[in-house]
Design a protein around this nucleic acid. Structure first.
Lengths: 301, 301
DNA sequence: CCGTATTACGCTAGCCGTAATGATG
DNA sequence: CATCATTACGGCTAGCGTAATACGG
């Protein structure tokens, strides 16, 4: 049988052009390599070398063999890589979302329902999400519109409302009944992280908003504390209030209908069974939310 | 290292779905196979099987691995086949000719000039010859026209004249000065072997000639002896007379100009060096032929 | 002489088989 | 209890290293 170690040794010889150099590279003795090459010729059944007394050279067969051997070794390595990647993916749930909030809420749920699974997540545009879901790159995706694709199953998941937190001395802060995105033109707004589809939405409704994005929590907090810049916020933060969130600011709801969204959690239909428990849990939570009525009005100090 | 025997064992397990069946197929004990599969998982670094106490099944990784393993084994076998073919071709001169006579004359010459080389030959159409020569499938080809291709070198080789041998009582046998192919319409003509381009030529000039082809020498001789059927012949047979060739018949030369041909021996220009000796020998023989003047007029008893 | 390939010889790692054990239907 | 997988143990093959040999620039 044509064993792999023979191929590996052959390509080393082909690269170094001498047995001794190849032997050193392979951490092998010269005699061992000499024998291996004889054995390889024996297994393949054709001479691969021209042998002078003191020198060994690949002949035409050998040159060709070395090329083919390299390709086989490459294929073997790819096999190993591929299988390792496959196995990793079998122990990882890959999900993507169109906005940050689902990336906060989904992982705890997934950890509870699928203990031991790793979770990999990111934020992407909706078209990209759908393509990745259908290709299998993602197992789960969260949209803010019902995904329309024949091979995709979904359940409504969360709802979220966007707020703008303004310093009390800002004239707009008086409008506690609510504002429209269009009213925010010209504002510099602080943002933590990538906010997904919200960004396009804001830009569409109020093209001259300027975002100051900050990915580091600590730096972001310092900016919030040390400035009176407006900050976008979500009812998500008010439902689970974190003390000292957005101090010295007034939270004003945004009244555009696009600023109240429902999220939809989706998977490929062929994985419906796998995520049955998750979907049921989401339906339950979604139901509870509906029962509890309108999102809480935020408390702000 | 991912050794070949492990891959071979994996595909056997994948095919038979149980270790014991695979072990039997591989002429191996079950424990050995059990260990091998463990080792394989160890080498690749991912589990390939679901193990119940009494049953082992390929998991998703394993199914994929088996497919990849099969492909690698296939590539290895192709490597061996390819190298054996390459080596054979290095010890064989492949030539093709458009007619039988060069296949009689060339092998002795090749054996003399390239001792130890095997010779493989066949008769083909000219276009096919040229394609095979250019692709490297053939190293040498004999045409009856000068081959016109930029990457082909050639030398004029032999000349041959076609004769028709008729029974003396055939009315055409009186025309000892010669006949045209067109005169032979309606004749049944005996043939030994595939005559290459001559066949198309005869058909073109005299569409209703009927060929009785016989590939066995002995049977052919019996037919010649036991019938008075006309037989095609070539001055080649008269130059090196074989006693009792075409007994009881009269050889009449064919006067169509296409019935006197010169052959051209060709190789790819990149192999010119390898066949230099051969080409020189051919040029010498060709020159001698020219010096000796017209082909001998055949003697027929 | 030093570098390189091959031959000779003994060692050992690793692969295999037999036997025994455990689990399942 | 027949079948299948795993574990335990001992044997042996085959690949390895060391040492010695041979050849060449």
């Amino acid at each position: 049988m044509l064993e792999t170690y023979l191929l590996e040794q052959l390509v080393a010889v082909a690269r170094t052009r001498t047995l001794s150099a190849a032997a050193e590279e392979l951490h092998l003795s010269q005699p061992a390599l000499s024998r291996s090459m004889k054995k390889l010729e024996d297994v393949i059944g054709v001479p691969l070398f021209d042998r002078q007394k003191n020198r060994i050279t690949l002949n035409e067969n050998g040159e060709e063999a070395a090329i083919l051997a390299e390709s086989i070794l490459k294929q073997q390595n790819e096999m190993i890589e591929h299988l390792r990647a496959l196995d990793r993916s079998r122990h990882t749930i890959f999900f993507g979302a169109c906005a940050p909030v689902p990336t906060y809420t989904l992982p705890p749920l997934l950890h509870r329902l699928y203990p031991g699974m790793a979770i990999s997540q990111d934020i992407r545009g909706e078209e990209e999400l759908l393509a990745a879901l259908e290709s299998g790159e993602l197992q789960l995706a969260v949209f803010h519109r019902q995904p329309e694709a024949a091979d995709v199953a979904w359940v409504s998941y969360l709802s979220e409302k966007l707020f703008i937190c303004l310093p009390p001395d800002n004239p707009l802060a008086k409008r506690t009944e609510g504002l429209y995105l269009a009213d925010l033109g010209g504002l510099n707004v602080l943002l933590y992280t990538n906010i997904g589809f919200w960004y396009e939405l804001c830009l569409e409704k109020s093209p001259d908003i300027r975002f100051l994005r900050q990915n580091d929590w600590e730096a972001f907090d310092q900016l919030v504390d040390g400035s009176n810049l407006p900050v976008f916020a979500s009812d998500y933060f008010f439902r689970f209030p974190v003390p000292e969130n957005f101090p010295e600011r007034v939270a004003i709801p945004l009244l555009d209908e696009e600023c109240s969204v429902t999220y939809y959690l989706a998977c490929r239909k062929d994985e419906k069974k796998r995520f049955r428990a998750l979907f049921e849990e989401c339906a339950k939570q979604s139901g509870k939310m509906k029962v509890s009525g309108e999102p809480l009005h935020p408390e702000v100090r």
